[in-house]
């Protein structure tokens, strides 16, 4: 059997938080296949917090609908952590909800990227690539701490409307999320 080429991802630690064992297995299979070296799993927020203390993750994959918990509350909790606990960790939200209002709600909680179910390998790989090679600045505006809701690659010339209510919607980005991964396989 041919040996799998060693990927730079071998050094990464990814934490997968999902209450459904089958879904964790699917994400684990994709991440391991892409070459991620360390993958931890948690079925709920308490287990995730314990994992994060033991072995801080580089990236988190988080299901929105945990058993009796809301994944977005966990996102807000992480973003509010003291600086030495990495409130800037990239969080990729895994969700079956691609409705406009849901996407905006999640983004405004401080999610870094979205991954719409059903998953595709390409979509997972692209989200990894985004958080590794195209990270965003963070913004603290009022109650919000999270990734800049405009991509770093965009010019910031012209009116800067960060922190104003109308800036919470970035149509290009929301359209891209709502398109999802359905045609990416």
């Amino acid at each position: 059997m041919a040996k799998q080429p060693r990927s730079g991802l071998a050094t990464l630690h990814v934490l997968v938080i999902d209450d459904h064992k089958g879904m964790r297995e699917i994400i684990w299979t994709i991440l391991a296949g892409l070459g991620v070296g360390n993958i931890s799993e948690a079925a709920d927020i308490a287990a995730a917090e314990a994992q994060m203390k033991r072995f801080p993750p580089d990236i988190i994959f988080l299901d929105w609908m945990l058993q009796s918990e809301n994944g977005l509350e966990f996102v807000r909790h992480i973003r509010a952590l003291p600086d030495n606990q990495n409130p800037f960790v990239p969080i990729i939200l895994v969700t079956g909800h691609a409705e406009y209002e849901r996407v905006v709600e999640a983004r405004d909680a401080g999610v870094t990227e979205f991954l719409v179910k059903p998953l595709t390998t390409l979509a997972v790989a692209q989200r990894l690539e985004m958080v590794i090679h195209h990270p965003r600045n963070f913004v603290r505006a009022g109650e919000y701490l999270g990734p800049d809701r405009r991509r770093r690659t965009r010019s910031i010339d012209g009116p800067d409307r960060r922190g104003t209510p109308e800036m919470l919607l970035d149509q290009d980005e929301i359209d891209a999320v709502m398109k999802g991964g359905a045609d990416e396989r």
Binding site: G33, A125, D160
Partner: peptide, 30 residues
């Protein structure tokens, strides 16, 4: 902001890119 709203723009060093190095999606891994 243009209406005077204060905010902080936080430039977070890209520790992940340094750690991972050259990673790009390729057909073989897919």
């Amino acid at each position: 902001g243009p209406r005077g709203h204060p905010y902080e723009l936080i430039d977070v060093p890209n520790r992940l890119a340094r750690k991972v190095g050259d990673f790009h999606v390729d057909p073989a891994s897919i």
